[in-house]
Amino acid sequence: MRVLGIETSCDETGVAIYDSEQGLLGDVLYSQVKMHAEYGGVVPELASRDHVRKLLPLLDEVFQNAGLEKGDVDALAYTSGPGLIGALMVGASTGRALALAWDKPAIGVHHMEGHLLAPMLEEHPPSFPFVALLVSGGHTQLVQVDGIGQYALLGESLDDAAGEAFDKAAKMLGLDYPGGPLVAQHALQGDRTRFRFPRPMVDRPGMDMSFSGLKTYTLNTANDHRDNDGRIDDQTMCDIAAAFEEAVVDTLAIKCKRALQHTGFKQLIIAGGVSANQRLRERLEEMVVKERAELFYARPEFCTDNGAMIAYAGCQRLMAGQHSGLEIVTKPRWPLDTLAPL
């Protein structure tokens, strides 16, 4: 089955064509990150307008790249939640309209299901069951995955998502948006042992997390090292970035280890924007070796939002005979554990 996937839940417009026999045939993406950078974050209404502007040209492009006539797919999949309502509406209404025009079935896909299935697009995919760490600017969740649609929440961040904590720490250190990759870049030059930040909630049982307190810690450490003009020297800045990154990564690793031990599973997948963090991957690789488990992740461009993961997730459900009704449904809030199994 050949499926067109459309992703517009936040600030990336992604379109891809996935074929269950031939794999990925085309994948194009437009990122609004540069546009939002001047505001230091995503601007919901701007995001929607930009999706409207970019989506149709991207659709042309993906069919052209795949060497296919426009509409030469068996079905469509579009992200219907969770996300920004206006942004979701663009993808969902376009997907539904094309499905009607081409007389093809279509399905609304859960954005996070897309992310957690993204490693399936790689050459050595994991097999069910596995533990998934979904970690991005908007989410930090540990999920037990028994099969497609069979998800149980093991733990989550009780306050800030890990990616959000990265962005805000960056802002406190005077770095640009998006701050996560910049903090990681500075951390590379930093001494990871000069400062030691706390690992929140690791002394308590369970797999819930909290990253809000690390902001306060970052702020206090930065303020303790400002000169008379309020500036921090470059090395100290890098050292703080390293201490911050180490605290987040270590906390995530401890919670992932607990999740593996709790479930008895031997496979861990990481997905979402923060899963591209190099230090996180290193730290998790060390941990899974000790646990006699294996780590899986998607290629960097499929860690962040993309159309390929939506085409893939939609394809699995469509092949099982599922599809959505003709009405345009978007769900800005949509708990992952309420999805239907295959």
Partner: peptide, 10 residues
């Protein structure tokens, strides 16, 4: 339950 930061959802 938890009280999540509304930064990303407003």
């Amino acid at each position: 339950g938890s009280v999540k930061s509304p930064t990303y959802t407003l």
